[in-house]
Computed example of a mutant assay.
Amino acid sequence: MPYEVTGVVARAKGEPVSLETVVVPDPGPGEVVVDVQACGVCHTDLHYREGGIGDDFPYLLGHEAAGVVSALGEGVTSVAEGDFVVLNWRAVCGQCRACRRGRPWYCFATHNARQPMTLADGTVLSNALGIGAFQAKTLVAAGQCTKVDPEAPATAAGLLGCGVMAGFGAAVHTGGVRLGDTVAVIGCGGVGSAAVAGAALVGARTVIAVDRDPRKLEWAKGFGATHTVDASQADTVEAIKELTGGFGADVVIDAVGRPETYEQAFYARDLAGTVVLVGVPTPDMRLELPLLDVFGRGGALKSSWYGDCLPDRDFPVLVDLYRQGRFDLDGFVTETIGLGDVEAAFDRMHSGDVLRSVVVL
Protein backbone atom coordinates (compact mmCIF):
# COMPACT_ATOMS: atom_id res chain seq x y z
CA MET A 1 0.00 0.00 0.00
CA PRO A 2 1.17 3.61 -0.56
CA TYR A 3 3.38 5.27 2.03
CA GLU A 4 2.85 8.67 3.63
CA VAL A 5 6.01 10.60 4.51
CA THR A 6 7.00 14.17 5.29
CA GLY A 7 8.75 15.92 2.39
CA VAL A 8 10.26 19.32 1.62
CA VAL A 9 8.13 21.08 -1.00
CA ALA A 10 8.51 24.35 -2.91
CA ARG A 11 4.92 25.43 -3.56
CA ALA A 12 5.53 28.65 -5.48
CA LYS A 13 8.37 30.64 -7.03
CA GLY A 14 10.59 32.30 -4.46
CA GLU A 15 8.51 31.25 -1.47
CA PRO A 16 10.11 29.49 1.51
CA VAL A 17 9.89 25.70 1.35
CA SER A 18 7.42 23.87 3.57
CA LEU A 19 7.12 20.44 5.13
CA GLU A 20 4.20 18.57 3.54
CA THR A 21 2.67 15.10 3.68
CA VAL A 22 3.71 13.25 0.52
CA VAL A 23 2.14 10.07 -0.79
CA VAL A 24 4.68 7.61 -2.24
CA PRO A 25 3.02 4.85 -4.31
CA ASP A 26 4.00 1.21 -4.34
CA PRO A 27 6.62 0.63 -7.04
CA GLY A 28 5.34 -0.29 -10.48
CA PRO A 29 7.22 -2.15 -13.22
CA GLY A 30 10.85 -1.05 -13.34
CA GLU A 31 10.51 1.09 -10.21
CA VAL A 32 11.84 0.85 -6.66
CA VAL A 33 11.21 2.54 -3.33
CA VAL A 34 14.33 3.71 -1.51
CA ASP A 35 14.50 4.50 2.20
CA VAL A 36 16.54 7.70 2.11
CA GLN A 37 19.26 7.98 4.75
CA ALA A 38 20.89 11.27 3.73
CA CYS A 39 20.45 13.91 1.04
CA GLY A 40 22.66 16.90 0.24
CA VAL A 41 21.27 20.41 -0.19
CA CYS A 42 22.39 21.27 -3.72
CA HIS A 43 22.24 24.64 -5.45
CA THR A 44 19.98 23.00 -8.02
CA ASP A 45 17.32 22.62 -5.33
CA LEU A 46 17.49 26.36 -4.77
CA HIS A 47 17.19 26.91 -8.54
CA TYR A 48 13.96 24.90 -8.48
CA ARG A 49 12.59 26.95 -5.59
CA GLU A 50 13.48 30.19 -7.38
CA GLY A 51 11.83 29.08 -10.62
CA GLY A 52 15.16 29.03 -12.44
CA ILE A 53 14.60 25.58 -13.94
CA GLY A 54 10.88 25.61 -14.67
CA ASP A 55 7.47 26.58 -13.35
CA ASP A 56 5.98 23.14 -12.74
CA PHE A 57 5.23 23.89 -9.10
CA PRO A 58 4.89 22.39 -6.58
CA TYR A 59 8.36 20.82 -6.57
CA LEU A 60 9.45 17.99 -4.30
CA LEU A 61 13.07 18.89 -3.57
CA GLY A 62 16.21 16.84 -2.87
CA HIS A 63 18.27 14.67 -5.19
CA GLU A 64 21.83 14.12 -3.83
CA ALA A 65 20.84 11.04 -1.89
CA ALA A 66 21.84 7.63 -0.64
CA GLY A 67 19.77 5.00 1.10
CA VAL A 68 18.53 1.42 1.09
CA VAL A 69 16.19 -0.24 -1.41
CA SER A 70 13.06 -1.28 0.48
CA ALA A 71 10.59 -2.36 -2.25
CA LEU A 72 10.84 -3.58 -5.83
CA GLY A 73 8.46 -3.30 -8.75
CA GLU A 74 7.86 -5.99 -11.32
CA GLY A 75 10.83 -6.93 -13.48
CA VAL A 76 13.54 -5.22 -11.41
CA THR A 77 16.72 -7.30 -11.34
CA SER A 78 19.49 -4.68 -11.18
CA VAL A 79 19.07 -4.13 -7.43
CA ALA A 80 17.59 -6.11 -4.54
CA GLU A 81 15.85 -5.21 -1.32
CA GLY A 82 18.45 -4.23 1.27
CA ASP A 83 20.99 -2.89 -1.26
CA PHE A 84 22.72 0.35 -0.26
CA VAL A 85 22.48 2.68 -3.24
CA VAL A 86 23.33 6.16 -4.44
CA LEU A 87 20.60 7.82 -6.51
CA ASN A 88 21.30 9.41 -9.87
CA TRP A 89 19.18 11.55 -12.16
CA ARG A 90 20.30 10.16 -15.51
CA ALA A 91 19.12 6.54 -15.71
CA VAL A 92 20.31 5.54 -19.18
CA CYS A 93 17.91 3.92 -21.64
CA GLY A 94 20.33 1.62 -23.47
CA GLN A 95 18.46 2.15 -26.73
CA CYS A 96 18.99 5.71 -27.98
CA ARG A 97 21.58 6.60 -30.61
CA ALA A 98 24.15 7.64 -27.96
CA CYS A 99 23.74 4.38 -26.02
CA ARG A 100 23.90 2.28 -29.20
CA ARG A 101 27.14 4.01 -30.18
CA GLY A 102 28.74 3.05 -26.86
CA ARG A 103 28.42 6.50 -25.28
CA PRO A 104 25.74 5.96 -22.63
CA TRP A 105 26.98 8.91 -20.56
CA TYR A 106 25.41 11.07 -23.29
CA CYS A 107 22.10 9.13 -23.22
CA PHE A 108 19.44 11.27 -24.91
CA ALA A 109 16.49 9.42 -23.37
CA THR A 110 17.21 9.18 -19.66
CA HIS A 111 14.19 8.27 -17.58
CA ASN A 112 12.63 8.41 -14.12
CA ALA A 113 9.81 6.62 -12.33
CA ARG A 114 6.55 6.61 -14.32
CA GLN A 115 4.23 7.05 -11.35
CA PRO A 116 4.01 10.47 -9.70
CA MET A 117 4.30 11.21 -6.03
CA THR A 118 1.56 13.50 -4.74
CA LEU A 119 0.49 15.70 -1.89
CA ALA A 120 -2.18 14.28 0.43
CA ASP A 121 -4.90 16.06 -1.57
CA GLY A 122 -3.77 14.38 -4.80
CA THR A 123 -1.78 17.31 -6.22
CA VAL A 124 0.95 15.88 -8.45
CA LEU A 125 4.48 16.84 -7.44
CA SER A 126 7.35 17.58 -9.81
CA ASN A 127 10.41 15.79 -8.46
CA ALA A 128 13.70 17.67 -8.45
CA LEU A 129 15.79 16.01 -11.16
CA GLY A 130 13.33 13.14 -11.18
CA ILE A 131 14.16 12.10 -7.62
CA GLY A 132 12.62 14.11 -4.75
CA ALA A 133 14.62 12.82 -1.79
CA PHE A 134 14.09 15.30 1.04
CA GLN A 135 11.87 12.67 2.67
CA ALA A 136 12.22 9.27 4.31
CA LYS A 137 11.10 7.29 1.23
CA THR A 138 11.14 8.09 -2.46
CA LEU A 139 10.09 6.37 -5.68
CA VAL A 140 12.59 6.17 -8.54
CA ALA A 141 13.33 4.13 -11.63
CA ALA A 142 15.53 1.13 -10.86
CA GLY A 143 18.16 2.53 -13.22
CA GLN A 144 18.51 5.55 -10.93
CA CYS A 145 19.96 3.31 -8.21
CA THR A 146 23.66 2.40 -8.14
CA LYS A 147 24.78 -0.16 -5.60
CA VAL A 148 27.90 0.86 -3.65
CA ASP A 149 29.89 -0.34 -0.63
CA PRO A 150 27.53 -0.16 2.36
CA GLU A 151 30.45 0.70 4.66
CA ALA A 152 30.45 4.22 3.24
CA PRO A 153 28.28 6.62 5.27
CA ALA A 154 25.24 7.90 3.41
CA THR A 155 26.22 11.51 4.18
CA ALA A 156 29.33 11.08 2.03
CA ALA A 157 28.13 8.62 -0.62
CA GLY A 158 24.98 10.60 -1.45
CA LEU A 159 27.02 13.59 -2.62
CA LEU A 160 28.11 11.57 -5.65
CA GLY A 161 24.52 11.84 -6.87
CA CYS A 162 25.07 15.34 -8.26
CA GLY A 163 27.58 18.05 -7.36
CA VAL A 164 30.68 16.04 -6.51
CA MET A 165 30.27 13.75 -9.52
CA ALA A 166 29.64 16.73 -11.80
CA GLY A 167 32.84 18.46 -10.72
CA PHE A 168 35.02 15.36 -10.59
CA GLY A 169 33.79 14.24 -13.99
CA ALA A 170 34.24 17.70 -15.51
CA ALA A 171 37.96 17.39 -14.78
CA VAL A 172 38.57 13.70 -15.34
CA HIS A 173 36.04 12.71 -18.01
CA THR A 174 35.12 15.85 -19.94
CA GLY A 175 38.39 17.70 -19.48
CA GLY A 176 40.51 14.57 -19.77
CA VAL A 177 43.03 15.81 -17.20
CA ARG A 178 46.10 13.60 -17.22
CA LEU A 179 49.29 13.13 -15.26
CA GLY A 180 51.42 16.28 -15.47
CA ASP A 181 48.71 18.63 -16.78
CA THR A 182 48.14 22.17 -15.58
CA VAL A 183 44.55 22.88 -14.53
CA ALA A 184 42.62 25.94 -13.42
CA VAL A 185 39.17 25.84 -11.82
CA ILE A 186 37.10 29.04 -11.76
CA GLY A 187 34.54 28.93 -8.95
CA CYS A 188 35.29 26.74 -5.95
CA GLY A 189 31.98 25.85 -4.39
CA GLY A 190 31.01 22.19 -4.18
CA VAL A 191 31.30 21.47 -7.92
CA GLY A 192 34.51 23.43 -8.39
CA SER A 193 36.14 21.89 -5.33
CA ALA A 194 35.27 18.45 -6.69
CA ALA A 195 36.94 19.38 -9.97
CA VAL A 196 40.03 20.41 -7.99
CA ALA A 197 39.96 17.07 -6.15
CA GLY A 198 39.58 15.13 -9.40
CA ALA A 199 42.44 16.94 -11.09
CA ALA A 200 44.70 16.35 -8.09
CA LEU A 201 43.73 12.68 -7.86
CA VAL A 202 44.75 11.89 -11.44
CA GLY A 203 48.11 13.64 -11.09
CA ALA A 204 47.84 17.19 -12.42
CA ARG A 205 51.10 18.92 -11.49
CA THR A 206 49.51 22.35 -11.10
CA VAL A 207 45.95 22.90 -9.89
CA ILE A 208 44.90 26.54 -9.63
CA ALA A 209 41.75 27.40 -7.68
CA VAL A 210 40.08 30.73 -8.53
CA ASP A 211 37.35 32.36 -6.46
CA ARG A 212 36.37 35.66 -4.87
CA ASP A 213 35.79 34.11 -1.44
CA PRO A 214 38.92 33.40 0.65
CA ARG A 215 37.04 30.65 2.54
CA LYS A 216 36.42 28.73 -0.67
CA LEU A 217 40.04 29.08 -1.67
CA GLU A 218 41.06 27.54 1.66
CA TRP A 219 38.63 24.68 1.08
CA ALA A 220 40.09 24.16 -2.39
CA LYS A 221 43.59 23.86 -0.96
CA GLY A 222 42.29 21.08 1.25
CA PHE A 223 41.17 19.21 -1.88
CA GLY A 224 44.53 19.49 -3.59
CA ALA A 225 44.86 22.97 -5.13
CA THR A 226 48.53 23.85 -5.48
CA HIS A 227 47.85 27.57 -6.02
CA THR A 228 44.96 29.96 -5.39
CA VAL A 229 43.84 33.18 -7.06
CA ASP A 230 41.58 35.68 -5.32
CA ALA A 231 39.59 37.00 -8.27
CA SER A 232 38.54 40.05 -6.29
CA GLN A 233 42.17 41.13 -6.02
CA ALA A 234 43.84 39.91 -9.23
CA ASP A 235 43.18 39.59 -12.95
CA THR A 236 42.17 35.95 -13.34
CA VAL A 237 43.63 35.40 -16.81
CA GLU A 238 46.96 37.04 -16.05
CA ALA A 239 47.27 35.24 -12.70
CA ILE A 240 46.68 31.83 -14.31
CA LYS A 241 49.20 32.59 -17.04
CA GLU A 242 51.78 33.71 -14.48
CA LEU A 243 51.37 30.40 -12.63
CA THR A 244 51.77 28.37 -15.84
CA GLY A 245 54.94 29.80 -17.30
CA GLY A 246 53.08 32.48 -19.23
CA PHE A 247 51.22 29.99 -21.39
CA GLY A 248 47.90 29.33 -19.67
CA ALA A 249 46.53 26.06 -18.31
CA ASP A 250 46.05 22.86 -20.28
CA VAL A 251 42.50 22.56 -18.93
CA VAL A 252 40.37 25.40 -17.54
CA ILE A 253 37.06 24.53 -15.87
CA ASP A 254 34.33 27.13 -15.49
CA ALA A 255 32.28 26.01 -12.50
CA VAL A 256 30.40 29.32 -12.30
CA GLY A 257 28.61 29.45 -15.64
CA ARG A 258 28.57 33.15 -16.47
CA PRO A 259 29.71 34.85 -19.70
CA GLU A 260 32.50 36.71 -17.92
CA THR A 261 33.92 33.58 -16.25
CA TYR A 262 33.66 31.61 -19.49
CA GLU A 263 35.60 34.32 -21.30
CA GLN A 264 38.23 34.18 -18.57
CA ALA A 265 38.45 30.41 -19.00
CA PHE A 266 38.76 30.79 -22.77
CA TYR A 267 41.71 33.18 -22.58
CA ALA A 268 43.36 31.53 -19.58
CA ARG A 269 43.99 28.24 -21.40
CA ASP A 270 47.12 27.35 -23.32
CA LEU A 271 47.07 27.05 -27.10
CA ALA A 272 45.25 23.84 -28.02
CA GLY A 273 44.00 23.67 -24.44
CA THR A 274 40.54 22.69 -23.27
CA VAL A 275 37.75 24.75 -21.72
CA VAL A 276 35.06 22.87 -19.79
CA LEU A 277 31.77 24.53 -18.83
CA VAL A 278 30.14 22.76 -15.89
CA GLY A 279 28.54 25.75 -14.14
CA VAL A 280 24.94 26.11 -15.30
CA PRO A 281 24.05 29.42 -17.02
CA THR A 282 20.60 30.99 -17.00
CA PRO A 283 18.53 31.16 -20.21
CA ASP A 284 19.11 34.90 -20.67
CA MET A 285 22.92 34.75 -20.76
CA ARG A 286 24.76 35.39 -24.04
CA LEU A 287 28.42 34.95 -25.01
CA GLU A 288 30.38 36.92 -27.60
CA LEU A 289 33.89 35.90 -28.66
CA PRO A 290 35.91 36.84 -31.74
CA LEU A 291 35.54 33.89 -34.09
CA LEU A 292 39.15 34.30 -35.19
CA ASP A 293 40.25 33.74 -31.58
CA VAL A 294 38.14 30.58 -31.39
CA PHE A 295 39.85 29.34 -34.54
CA GLY A 296 43.33 30.59 -33.77
CA ARG A 297 43.62 29.22 -30.25
CA GLY A 298 42.59 25.71 -31.29
CA GLY A 299 41.85 23.09 -28.69
CA ALA A 300 38.39 22.21 -27.46
CA LEU A 301 35.40 23.99 -25.94
CA LYS A 302 33.29 21.47 -24.05
CA SER A 303 30.17 21.36 -21.91
CA SER A 304 30.00 18.77 -19.15
CA TRP A 305 26.66 17.04 -18.52
CA TYR A 306 26.76 15.49 -15.05
CA GLY A 307 30.52 15.15 -15.41
CA ASP A 308 29.98 12.84 -18.41
CA CYS A 309 29.59 10.14 -15.78
CA LEU A 310 28.19 6.64 -16.00
CA PRO A 311 26.87 6.01 -12.48
CA ASP A 312 27.26 2.22 -12.51
CA ARG A 313 30.89 2.68 -13.58
CA ASP A 314 31.88 5.72 -11.54
CA PHE A 315 30.00 5.71 -8.22
CA PRO A 316 31.45 2.39 -6.94
CA VAL A 317 34.96 3.46 -7.92
CA LEU A 318 34.74 6.80 -6.13
CA VAL A 319 33.26 5.18 -3.04
CA ASP A 320 36.15 2.70 -3.05
CA LEU A 321 38.65 5.54 -3.38
CA TYR A 322 36.91 7.26 -0.47
CA ARG A 323 37.11 4.11 1.63
CA GLN A 324 40.85 3.92 0.85
CA GLY A 325 41.37 7.50 2.04
CA ARG A 326 42.23 8.78 -1.45
CA PHE A 327 39.11 10.88 -2.15
CA ASP A 328 37.83 13.06 0.68
CA LEU A 329 34.05 13.00 0.37
CA ASP A 330 33.71 13.92 4.05
CA GLY A 331 35.46 17.19 3.29
CA PHE A 332 32.45 18.38 1.31
CA VAL A 333 30.08 17.95 4.28
CA THR A 334 30.03 21.23 6.16
CA GLU A 335 27.06 20.35 8.39
CA THR A 336 24.32 17.79 8.91
CA ILE A 337 20.77 19.04 9.40
CA GLY A 338 17.16 17.91 9.65
CA LEU A 339 14.31 18.24 7.15
CA GLY A 340 13.08 21.39 8.84
CA ASP A 341 16.40 23.14 8.32
CA VAL A 342 16.49 23.17 4.50
CA GLU A 343 15.33 26.77 4.13
CA ALA A 344 18.03 27.97 6.54
CA ALA A 345 20.55 25.87 4.59
CA PHE A 346 19.60 27.81 1.45
CA ASP A 347 20.45 31.02 3.31
CA ARG A 348 23.86 29.66 4.31
CA MET A 349 24.45 28.58 0.72
CA HIS A 350 23.69 32.12 -0.48
CA SER A 351 26.21 33.60 1.94
CA GLY A 352 28.91 31.07 1.02
CA ASP A 353 29.14 29.61 4.52
CA VAL A 354 28.89 25.96 3.42
CA LEU A 355 30.12 23.58 0.76
CA ARG A 356 27.28 21.18 1.52
CA SER A 357 24.57 20.95 4.14
CA VAL A 358 23.37 17.35 4.30
CA VAL A 359 19.93 16.33 5.52
CA VAL A 360 20.06 13.19 7.68
CA LEU A 361 16.87 11.14 7.91
Rank of each mutant, 00 (worst) to 15 (best):
T336R: 15
D181K: 11
G130R: 02
H173F: 08
V32H: 06
Y106Q: 15
V183A: 12
T123W: 02
G299Y: 04
F108Q: 06
V85N: 11
G54L: 13
D121L: 08
G203M: 07
L139R: 07
Q324I: 05
A225V: 10
R212T: 04
V354W: 07
A239F: 00
V196C: 14
R269Y: 01
G161M: 02
G161I: 00
H227L: 11
V354D: 03
I337K: 04
G296R: 15
V252A: 07
Q37K: 11
Q324L: 13
V23T: 02
R269H: 06
S70F: 13
W105L: 08
S193Y: 13
G176S: 07
V191N: 00
T274M: 13
V354N: 13
L289G: 03
A234S: 08
P29T: 07
L361N: 01
V24R: 05
T244R: 13
T334S: 02
L291A: 08
V191I: 07
W305Q: 12
V68S: 15
D320V: 01
A220N: 01
V342Q: 06
L61W: 10
G51D: 02
A197I: 01
M1D: 11
T261H: 11
D341C: 03
G30T: 00
G299M: 05
A197P: 01
Y48A: 15
R101E: 08
A120I: 03
L159Y: 04
G169F: 13
A166L: 09
G14Y: 10
E50V: 06
G338N: 06
R313F: 11
Y322Q: 04
A65H: 01
R100V: 11
I240C: 06
V32C: 10
L72M: 01
T77M: 08
P290C: 12
A345N: 11
P58Q: 08
V210S: 06
A170D: 04
L160G: 05
G222W: 11
A200N: 00
